[in-house]
Design a protein around this nucleic acid. Structure first.
Length: 1026
RNA sequence: UGGCUCGUAGCUCAGUUGGUUAGAGCGCUACACUGAUAAUGUAGAGGUCCCCAGUUCAAAUCUGGGCGGGCCAACCA
């Protein structure tokens, strides 16, 4: 380049500057070069969490991408090879729901009104709908990621790796089929995901019939319970009280759960419906819910059916753990729920017992939980643990099955909108009342989930599902998590750590259409199963009659048409489930490279007897990641699945550092939502203020992990404060440099030979480099950015440039001037590199402008440069301190002028500075020229410390005295504050003083006090002639 | 309902192991500067450190309990 002048644009407009830079990058392949010119250097592994392109990018995407981009650019400048492969998340419920909404269909229509083939085609189209917008924001915000070779989760290769992972899990016995209790909509005939349940409006307050039910103990258990009860009367029967809001689950009851540490009371009372004497057990703390305090030990004799108050008497107390194992009589006995029937599904089931569970509370109910393992997750868990068995008297349409006595065929809720629907729950309650086995029946209002499509209440229902046995490696997951560098730390220890502690097996199954199919085939009788880890393996096992043989697309419906042949020759059909989309993204470290199939050694190693042993020698490339970053909402999503899979498969972490950034809220601190209309359009923001200003604001305003109250004014501010100031500084430099033809051609002036001000700003600059590097290495970009802000504003612009202006326009082009040019040039050039990771556009613009003229470095772009190195020798902390003193002194003198109303323009003869400490004179003297110039004063005079111009003040040093004085501290502080100037002088001279506190002599050392002078240690004298 | 997190000036944020006048920037007001001028300087106003209780000679800081915002998980008898 032959330019001998620095470009000075007429206007400073960040957005148009940025679009210029974008096209330069494109022409010069700057991004590719920034990676390829680090080839062979140690790599810094980064994983891009795949966004879904079926929605528009929002401002919250800009923050996490800024963070990712910044770290990657920084590491690149530090000399690492940083590959950044983009990715697209393409499966999942939101995509299906979007398509269904668009087509105006529901899940039931799939396979009838629209073929699965057609439906999945629509989904495939939908996932890329906003890809253009995503590419645009990626480019506009300056996010460097390889968009040309992304990983796409729906591609056959990608899915094949997922299958490989699943097969590995299967081999290790980490994959199993079981039932799980899931939200289920009988009206829609489908299971629902928690995502669907949590859609707004799904939880609704409804009134249900609730019943407090009495379970009669069997004789032996009753005897056991009563053995230590001293009683004068014969107790006929003892009942356990349990409360339910879903009486339809009572015929499926198999257990009663008590809290092991809850106290229970055996109570003599009267049944409010039958008015008969009754003996019941419930939590002691909940007695008041059923009985009035005044009824305690009430008069049983005079009770009549009209009595308002039911008397009760506590006969005995038990700990929950003492009740465990007691047996009771089944509440409803039908053909379908006999013990024999139960044993058909659970051969050694032992139901109708009291068991204990930690989830039991005394918040409501009776402290005894009616447990029907089929209809509640907790119930199921406790049932499994205690071998209660499982009874499901309700079919998938939500009605009682045949064999449920009089209830057979009746719907548990009005699912069919029957006009004369008779609530079966009420009937059950009435039946129990008649039997004397209901203690309280009432309407109870609570919030209950509803199906978002049919508006009908859901139930919890046992459905078949495939699980990953994550609990088998829980300890390793916990241990390895402790080696991960979490930013912020608390998320790793708290939110994520707790999540790991309470982990349950990962339910993989989804009964949907558009997703990764489970590669599991079974014979119809379930006796043989095979998990295929590759397309080739499927083809190996094809049954002759399989209608699908090519498998060009591994999705439904084709995969379901694949019939395999079992070792014994039977037909095997695929398990119909799809897998959780989180598996897709969690396996991204391997699937993005089509591991292990992409490894040339794989095919050879996979053959032979030692296959699995051999394969241990290949590890996925670029694994684990050095760094990932996403929103905190991913803690239980991507962060978890990445971690789980890498531990399960490779006993390794998947990432060494993870930054969990917070959320972007609107300026009032409310969450952004389309409904509230407070979403920020990132395109608008970037087009108006520029990506760099936006990025700078997002990073410096709040730590990435704190939630950010997004206010557009903040972007304006960072544009003004940082970019405008830098721009002004640059144009100032360019203006004079062009006049003087400075292009850094003169010999480099060693820093030590430059004037003090130059040495100072270079010293400060290197201190800044040091701080920025420390902060960046610690993933504290906010602190780094703020340090840069401070330097540009306080040091460079408002001190160095301000004081040096004359050096640029006055005098000959020689030593002092050249030194100034070189110094300012170096500051600008270094700054362009320091801010390059944060604001890639402006920094490159600045760097290119400088370098185009000087040709100082053979780099086309700042992003191809190395990060500035700290030169320790250039740092002179003493000088920095001195300069600080000069700045403070100037401030002081200027404010003095202000107070006396003497303008800076009017020169003054002398300033008198009393010396507070002995080193001050030398320090100020070295910077006195600066001070004199700044405040327009001819000379500075010092007067000795023990002058009488200043009034000294003395204050107690609470730190040293506090622990020694204890309660007397207050009095001591007061006494010290009242010391006169003579006493202060004495203390200073003798370094100790005796003070009388409440009649006691206390010795006080120099360390025990802080001696200060009045605020104004500077006086001025007018110019003699003035 | 639980876990985590945040709460300091009008706004955005600092605030060390507890130490006595709680800071900065922006904004606001007044004045000054006018050879960086869509800049700059000086000064001023502005605080229940979310609330309550406790520990301590001393609490924005530590402990407990609340309240409010946010995220996640649940909503279960």
């Amino acid at each position: 380049m032959s330019d001998s002048t620095y470009t000075i644009p007429k206007h400073f407009h960040l957005p148009s500057l940025e679009s210029e830079i974008v096209s330069i990058w494109k022409n010069e392949n700057t991004f590719e070069q920034s990676v390829s010119n680090r080839k062979g250097r140690p790599s810094f592994v980064f994983y891009e969490g795949p966004p879904s392109a079926n929605g528009m990018p929002g401002i919250h995407h800009v923050i996490s991408r800024t963070l990712k981009d910044m770290v990657c650019r920084y590491k690149t400048m530090q000399g690492f090879e940083v590959n950044r492969k983009a990715g697209w998340d393409t499966h999942g419920l939101p995509i299906e729901l979007g398509v269904e909404k668009e087509l105006g269909i529901t899940k039931e229509d799939i396979g009838t009104k629209i073929s699965i083939e057609e439906y999945n085609k629509k989904c495939r189209e939908a996932v890329g709908r906003f890809k253009d917008k995503w590419d645009e924001i990626t480019q506009k915000m300056g996010y460097w990621v390889d968009l040309d070779h992304p990983y796409v989760t729906y591609e056959n290769d990608y899915i094949e790796t997922l299958w490989w992972c699943l097969k590995e899990l299967h081999k290790k016995n980490y994959l199993y089929k079981s039932v799980s209790i899931q939200p289920y909509s009988p009206a829609a005939g489908t299971g629902l995901s928690s995502h669907e349940i949590n859609q707004p409006g799904c939880y609704r307050d409804v009134k249900d019939t609730s019943a407090t039910v009495l379970f009669a103990l069997v004789e032996a258990s009753q005897a056991q319970l009563l053995q230590n009860i001293d009683r004068s009367e014969a107790i006929d029967k003892v009942y356990f009280m349990a409360w339910t809001t879903t009486p339809w689950t009572l015929p499926s009851n198999l257990g009663l759960t008590v809290g092991p540490n809850i106290n229970y009371a055996l109570v003599k009372t009267i049944n409010p419906y039958t008015h008969q004497l009754q003996y019941v057990v419930l939590a002691e703390l909940l007695l008041s819910k059923y009985f009035k305090p005044e009824a305690e030990d009430g008069d049983f004799e005079s009770y009549t059916a009209d009595s308002k108050v039911i008397p009760y008497k506590v006969l005995g107390l038990y700990k929950g753990s003492e009740l465990e194992g007691l047996q009771y009589e089944q509440l409803f006995t039908f053909e379908a729920n006999t013990l024999e029937k139960i044993k058909e599904t659970t051969p050694n089931a032992n139901p109708f017992r009291v068991v204990s569970g930690d989830f039991v509370t005394t918040e409501d109910g009776t402290g005894i939980v009616h447990t029907a393992p089929a209809f509640g997750a907790d119930d199921y868990k406790v049932g499994q643990k205690n071998n209660l068995g499982i009874v499901t008297l309700i079919d998938r349409e939500g009605k009682f099955i045949v064999g449920s006595g009089g209830y057979s065929g009746r719907y548990v809720k009005n699912y069919k909108d029957e006009k004369d629907y008779q609530d079966v729950n009420v009937d059950i309650a009435i039946a129990l009342k008649k039997r004397g086995q209901a203690f309280k029946v009432e309407k109870y209002e609570h919030s209950y989930p509803h199906c978002w499509r049919t508006d009908k209440p859901i139930i919890y229902y046992p459905l078949d599902a495939w699980f990953v046995r994550t609990t088998a490696v829980k300890d390793r997951m916990v241990a390895l998590n402790k080696t991960i560098n979490w930013k912020p730390k608390a998320t790793g220890e708290g939110r994520f750590g707790n999540w790991l502690e309470n982990m349950v097996d990962w339910n993989l199954s989804r009964s949907r259409f558009w997703g990764t199919p489970l590669p599991m085939w079974r014979t119809e009788d379930g006796s043989e199963e095979i998990c295929c880890g590759s397309i080739a393996e499927i083809k190996e096992h094809l049954h002759e009659e399989s209608p699908e043989r090519e498998l060009k697309d591994v999705h439904k419906p084709y995969i379901d048409q694949v019939i395999l042949k079992s070792p014994s020759g039977k037909k095997m059909y695929r398990e119909p489930d799809l897998i959780d989309v989180w598996f897709d993204s969690g396996a991204m470290p391997y699937a993005q490279w089509h591991f292990p199939f992409s490894d040339k050694r794989y095919e050879a190693l996979a053959k032979g007897d030692n296959a699995s042993e051999n394969l241990k020698s290949i590890l996925p490339p670029a694994f684990p990641a050095d760094f990932i970053a996403e929103g905190v909402d991913q803690t239980r999503g991507w962060f978890y699945t990445l971690h789980a899979l890498s531990v399960l498969l490779f006993d390794s972490v998947a990432y060494k550092t993870v930054v969990a950034n917070g959320f972007v809220l609107d300026k009032f601190g409310n969450k952004m939502s389309k409904r509230l209309g407070n979403v920020v359009d990132p395109f608008e923001t970037i087009n108006k203020y520029g990506a760099d200003a936006t990025r700078w604001y997002l990073i410096t305003n709040a730590s990435p992990w704190d939630s950010l109250k997004f206010d557009i004014k903040g972007i304006e501010e960072s544009q003004r404060q940082l970019f405008n100031t830098l721009y002004n500084t640059y144009t100032f430099f360019a203006l004079y440099a062009n006049v003087d033809h400075f292009s850094f051609k003169e010999q480099y002036i060693p820093i030590q030979k430059r004037p003090e001000l130059d040495r100072w700003v270079i010293s400060t600059l290197h201190t800044l480099i040091q701080n920025v590097q420390t902060y960046m290495d610690d993933y504290e970009p906010t602190k780094a950015g703020r340090a840069i802000d401070l330097f540009v504003d306080e040091c460079l612009s408002n001190w160095y440039v301000r004081l040096c202006r004359r050096r640029f326009w006055k005098g000959e082009y020689e030593f002092d001037k050249i030194s100034a040019y070189q110094t300012l040039y170096e500051c600008l050039e270094t700054l362009s590199k320091l801010i390059a990771p944060f604001s890639p556009f402006f920094s490159d613009w600045l760097y290119r402008n400088l370098n185009a003229c000087s040709n100082r470095e053979h780099k086309k772009s700042v992003h191809l440069c190395d990060f500035p190195l700290v030169i320790i020798d250039d740092i002179d902390t003493k000088l920095e301190e001195r300069m600080q003193l000069a700045q403070d002194t100037c401030s002081l003198l200027l404010s003095l002028r202000k107070k006396s109303n003497i303008k800076v323009r009017q020169p003054l003869q002398k300033a008198i500075i009393p010396l507070i400490d002995p080193t001050m004179e030398a320090k100020i003297e070295s910077v006195q020229e600066i001070i004199k110039g700044e405040v327009n004063i001819k000379e500075i005079e010092f007067i000795a410390a023990d002058n009488n111009l200043i009034q000294k003040k003395i204050k107690a040093n609470f730190k040293t005295l506090g622990s020694r004085m204890g309660a007397k501290m207050k009095a001591v502080a007061q006494a010290i504050a009242q010391l006169g100037s003579n006493e202060i002088l004495e203390l200073e001279r003798n370094e100790c003083l005796l003070v009388n506190i409440e009649g006691e002599e206390i010795e006080i050392g120099l360390n025990d006090v802080e001696i200060t002078s009045d605020d104004i240690p500077v006086y001025w004298l007018p110019l003699r002639e003035a």
